[in-house]
């Protein structure tokens, strides 16, 4: 088990290097820092001095990968690649355009992001699985068919609509909760309840349909027939046998998402004015703050890889037949 985890962690290293190289290529090779400076400064203010100043402020004035002017190891370390890309491995993300330290910013914004993402995730999972079980219990009846049609219709509605419509109805017409904002402590609940509910409703269509397919596939298996032949009521068959065995395919899709909950939700956070990582990313994209976007890309892929590892480990918990070696 431990050996397996270590091997998987080692396997993650080349992937992270690949991500790192890719972001480096995307941000510094496809466009030179000069191009970026010209774009950010705007047409009017572009002078060679202004470009130099812009680059120096951000540490982009070094050579890309090889500093021939320096001596010894400095030929490698005093370069953009080393200072901007390699140092991400040790958690040094540099500074954003507003001068703040990105790593610290991420640490403080993680809380609000999790406060929204975790309840949404847990509640969404619970509601979707319950609905799917309900539909499977009444399979091939009018309830099942109308449920599936409802799921397809809900899938076809843009996520933006749920947010805008929910804000309008609940906050503007009914005045139940504030329209947006955030505060720490217990007070946060009144800001969080609407985004969480909207997040759950928005995701329900696709996930219910997916779980329903998994359950239906499981229900054709031999052990289900055996259980029914023993005279077990359908309720017991469904909850005791099918639900447990359907866990494996469900885990595949679900566990991988858990670490990425840290990243927050781009849309929800920016609409509801929640100071999490999602809104941080959106603001960075809008302000074309390349350093922040680059850091978020890197963190996102680290978390995804952790998710893959967790998925493998969760199999052993859900299914004793799976041995990792």
């Amino acid at each position: 088990m431990l050996a397996y985890i270590i091997r998987r962690l080692l396997y993650a290293i080349p992937i992270l290097i690949g991500v790192n190289l890719l972001t480096f290529a995307l941000f510094f090779v496809v466009n030179t820092p000069d191009d970026m400076a010209r774009m950010q400064l705007g047409v009017k203010r572009v002078t060679p001095e202004a470009i130099q100043k812009w680059k120096a402020e951000r540490g982009y004035d070094q050579p890309l990968v090889w500093n021939s002017a320096a001596a010894g190891t400095a030929t490698v370390t005093e370069t953009i690649f080393f200072s901007k890309s390699v140092r991400m491995f040790v958690g040094d993300f540099g500074r954003a355009d507003d001068g703040r330290d990105i790593a610290r910013e991420i640490a403080t914004r993680m809380g609000p992001s999790l406060a929204i993402a975790v309840p949404t995730f847990v509640l969404g999972l619970f509601v979707a699985i319950s609905f799917a079980l309900l539909l499977v219990f009444f399979r091939a009846t009018a309830l099942d068919i109308s449920g599936v049609v409802l799921c397809v219709a809900m899938m076809s509605i843009s996520g933006l609509f749920y947010i805008i419509g929910g804000q309008w109805l609940v906050s503007k017409v009914w005045h139940l909760v504030p329209i947006s904002g955030y505060s720490g402590g217990v007070d946060a609940a009144k800001f969080l309840i609407l985004p969480v509910i909207i997040g759950v409703i928005g995701g329900i269509g696709a996930s219910t349909r997916w779980y329903r397919t998994i359950f239906l596939e499981e229900i054709t298996r031999d052990y289900v027939r055996t259980a029914r032949a023993k005279g077990l009521p359908e309720r017991v068959v469904l909850f005791r046998h099918v639900l447990r065995n359907a866990l494996i395919p469900i885990l595949t899709g679900v566990v991988v998402v858990i670490p990425t909950l840290f990243m927050g939700s781009l849309l929800t956070e920016s609409f509801f004015g929640i100071p999490g990582l999602g809104s941080y990313t959106i603001d960075a994209i809008n302000a074309q703050d390349f350093a922040v976007v680059r850091s978020m890309v890197f963190i996102g892929s680290v978390l995804y890889i952790v998710g893959l590892l967790l998925t493998d480990l969760s199999y052993t918990l859900a299914d004793p037949r799976v041995r990792l070696q």
Partner: peptide, 8 residues
């Protein structure tokens, strides 16, 4: 494809 898909 693992590398590409690991980026959100």
């Amino acid at each position: 494809y693992t590398t590409l898909s690991s980026i959100p």
